[in-house]
């Protein structure tokens, strides 16, 4: 591994992933994500975007090539270290994945309880994060009492609460209308400006065009383009 790669948050080197049945999800894909970057991963359905996120959280392992996330070598790490890997990052999902029987506060605090944080620390940190995500007034609400945008804010607050080095957001605006999606993107942008690396998988051209950040385009499992400052869509 060279020195540059060792400072990167995420490294994919010649990664190939073939699922059972012979479907090639990723074919010789290489890219790195540096600390503090905001990177979009785009591409049509079935292009291999989700496989990239699955590899990053060790839901899958590469068949060929090298994947490193933080200090974790995904291909070689032991199963018992998966929890530590996932604690080092925050995950945001398209379908929010909140616990319906827990309040907003409990849903966020839950991520800290898992890492064994003290009650005092949990109270202080959750309150800060809820304020940061604009949910201070809603801490007692249950997910079904919130709008889609608010639910996604809870998801982001949960991802943020353990001070992760980076956040992986898988289609976080996929279930939201335009204005709400914009609000979520503003929140992610603010988080990124505070130094947290963000890797976001999306379908939305609008968001990618507006944010003008680095874009990695995947199609048929191959890396088609890796550009800074937005993306020209004519090839996709």
């Amino acid at each position: 591994m060279d020195n540059t790669a060792s400072q990167s948050m995420v490294v994919f080197e010649n990664v190939t992933k073939i699922y059972d049945g012979g479907v090639t999800a990723l074919d010789d894909v290489s890219f790195t994500v540096e600390k503090g970057e905001f990177v979009f991963i785009i591409g049509p359905s079935g292009a291999g975007k989700s496989t990239i996120t699955k590899l990053m959280i060790h839901e899958e392992t590469p068949d060929e090539g090298y994947v490193r996330v933080g200090d974790f070598d995904i291909g070689k790490m032991h199963r018992r270290n998966i929890a530590a890997l996932r604690r080092s990052m925050g995950m945001v999902f398209q379908d929010f994945r909140l616990l319906p029987n827990k309040t907003v506060y409990e849903n966020v605090a839950f991520a800290m309880e898992i890492v064994g944080a003290s009650n005092k620390h949990i109270r202080r940190r959750v309150s800060t994060v809820l304020s940061q995500t604009g949910l201070s007034e809603k801490w007692k609400f249950y997910p079904d009492q919130l709008s889609g945008g608010e639910q996604q804010r809870v998801g982001i607050a949960r991802a943020l609460v353990n001070n992760p080095k980076f956040i992986v957001a898988d289609e976080p605006t996929g279930n939201l209308d335009g204005d709400t999606a914009e609000g979520i993107m503003e929140l992610l942008d603010e988080i990124n400006k505070c130094g947290t690396t963000i890797i976001m998988v999306t379908h939305s051209q609008q968001i990618v065009d507006r944010m003008k950040r680095r874009v990695i385009a995947i199609e048929n499992g191959k890396l088609m383009k890796d550009e800074q400052g937005g993306y020209s869509y004519e090839s996709l």
Binding site: R80, A83, R86, M91, I114
Partner: peptide, 16 residues
């Protein structure tokens, strides 16, 4: 199962 899945994603250990 949904709860378990979320716990896994946010970094809960298997024994937790």
């Amino acid at each position: 199962s949904c709860e378990i899945e979320i716990m896994k994603y946010v970094g809960a250990t298997d024994w937790y």
